[in-house]
Amino acid sequence: MNKEEIRTKALGVLAAVVPELEPAELAPDKSLRDQLDIDSVDFLNIVVGLAKTFGVDIPETDYRHLYTLDSLVAYLAGRAKG
């Protein structure tokens, strides 16, 4: 899975939790939490969605990698390879 595919699928997970999401308006290097106005429950739903979609476990200690869309894609790309 290349980064573009990961990005598309990840956006799908985000959109499931945040229906108002406009992918075109999402700055990839800025805080997801600030841009999407998500809270810890939304965030947990996103983590669960990512884990299911990509078939990886995401330990709590890795949550810091999910801060922006870019870092989230990079993290998932690394996990998928590993």
């Binding site: 429950v41 947990l44 669960v48 884990a51 476990d57 995401i58 709590e60």
Partner: peptide, 17 residues
Amino acid sequence: LATANAKLPVTERLLAG
């Protein structure tokens, strides 16, 4: 919570809330 969550898969992980 940290101990419990470390053992739990992400789908069962608990929030402090």
